[in-house]
Amino acid sequence: MAEASLLLCRRLTRRFGGIAALTDLDLEVASGAIHSIIGPNGAGKTTVFNCITQNLSPTSGEVWFRSDRIDGLTPDRVAAAGISRTYQNIRLFRNITAIENLLVGMHLHVHSHWWGAVLGTPHTKREEARAHAEALKLLHFIDLAGRGDLLARNLAYGEQRRLEIGRALATRPKLLLLDEPTAGMNPHETSRMMAFIQRVRAEFDITILLIEHQMRVVMGMSDRVTVLDHGAKIAEGTPPEVQGDPAVIEAYLGVKSAAPTAARDHAASLLGAAASER
């Protein structure tokens, strides 16, 4: 296992009943990278995340994280090991405030006992104050300063997205998994979100594994791209390598090799346009 890789999936497979959502996936995420997984709807992208965080246990295969095997652990231990995630359809704790969402994210790093809280020990108070200060900083970073006392469900859509990322960051992850962070956003919001993600990497010095549905989004900022289709990897490489790959074009546009070249050209130009935006 390469020294520089942070996460390694080996022959990862997940079946639901008779249907394979993921087949023999090998995935290696280099430390410090922004690595994207793309693919059409139903390609099994979210299943990869679920299998990494152990929300689903893989049917077979291995998941290694920082020289430890993590498949078979419970999700809270995976989080403790240093992996945190967001969800495609935002899953905040809707009935508590934004700052409390962040504080829940810091659960692993607040060291207090329940009886300490009941007795109000100085240690507990110190821990709470520290956590609180950190939560405020995070709140600021995700640009929600002044909105922290709102219930999460009352935040605007973009704010909810950022809060969810902030909550994931609160666990102090080494690896951050983002599941379609730009879903439901217009192009302007999308580019802001992309800038935000790059800032997250720079600021927190972490590795990011990103799922995207739109290829255009990831080409501009990914170090490496993995393309999934029907639960299997069909291509992998740097963005330029991937977007030239005929298999990728075929998967995205359903173009058979015998298809009119016009369509293929169109697809290539779409992909190319994204790259040139960089």
Partner: peptide
């Protein structure tokens, strides 16, 4: 599920 994914035992 989310609580657990954030490290809550």
């Amino acid at each position: 599920d989310v609580a657990q994914a954030l490290g809550v035992n």
